[in-house]
Design a binder for these strands. Structure first.
Lengths: 180, 180
DNA sequence: GTCTATAAGGGGATAGAC
DNA sequence: GTCTATCCCCTTATAGAC
């Protein structure tokens, strides 16, 4: 009932997609990293794409929900950044890694990480944003993205102090007090 | 004497590497984008790698020289960030794009963009850096990297005001006055 | 469920005509 | 210099034995 192998393959795929990118990772790479054969991969997953889709599903819906809440409840930039950073830290930065991997553009149309990022930046910039506002919003979002390399250096774990430090830097980059 | 075709191919390759990433861009893509055949690409360039190497050479040496100067003359974080952003804006952000494309890791050992980025972050963090210092240095560097999407939105041109805005956001993220 | 073997296609790269 | 045609390997994906 518990297909352990499947999880090992999924974990191997995640690690490789994060380190080498989606396009540069082959099914053979994934199989070898999990100590299995290529055919085993295709027994557990229909296509290479579907592996990416499975890895991305939960992180992507988390970000989507954040965007919805931000729009409906008019969350402040500080709240958006905090939620985004916490979510990224918890889901192991898969969303960010895929969003910044150009070879995954248009891979899974339902999970358009790039569009989600652009929307978040718009929300950070505010309703009547000037070009300068957008530059600052992009800067703040870029700081939030540093959870990826930070996670990699901290062996997949982000302590609270580090998370706060990233959040503070993002807010400073945004250049506001963080209020509504 | 002036092989125009070569420059067109180089320009097409740059555009595609930036948009889709190195691994996801095929020789056929490059040839089609320049209105040529695959064989034409291999007449002008020995390998696909060599195209990347040629695109990366000038931006990489610019960054290398910045690192050398920063080490020898003990440049301040503000000076390093300013130079880096200006250099990135001038070289069309090729360096940054390759540095953030995971599929180019170890492509050209001489041009290790990732190592260069880590070195710059160390220099920004300072000699006796705490973990928090490193987080802030990474944040500032991440802000500098936003020249990539910003250039893309501004059709390859960064006006002085925008450049200053990015620079200011990076310095705020770093959390210092920008002094020595 | 996992394997070996293989099909089908795309990738980088070459040969040779023009 | 540029093309068409081709080579060969690697990639995704499938078939079928165990």
């Amino acid at each position: 009932m518990t297909p352990r192998r499947r999880d090992e393959l999924l974990a191997a795929a995640r690690e490789l997609f994060l380190r080498k990118g989606y396009a540069a990772t082959s099914i053979a790479d994934i199989a070898a990293a999990a100590g299995a054969s290529k055919a085993a991969v295709f027994y557990h997953f229909k296509t290479k794409e579907s592996i990416a889709a499975e890895l991305l599903e939960s992180p992507f819906t988390a970000v989507s929900r954040l965007i919805e809440r931000a729009e409906e409840q008019r969350l402040s930039p500080a709240q958006i950044l905090t939620d985004y950073i916490d979510g990224a830290a918890e889901t192991g930065a898969v969303f960010l890694a895929f969003a910044s991997d150009p070879s995954t553009a248009d891979l899974i149309p339902q999970y358009d990480a790039d569009a989600a990022c652009r929307r978040i930046i718009e929300l950070l910039a505010g309703p009547a944003a000037t070009p300068a506002d957008r530059v600052r919003a992009r800067a703040a979002f870029a700081v939030a993205q540093t959870v990826v390399p930070t996670l990699q250096e901290h062996a997949g774990l982000l302590d609270d102090a580090t998370r706060q430090e990233i959040r503070a830097a993002a807010l400073r980059a945004l250049g506001t007090g963080g209020g509504s």
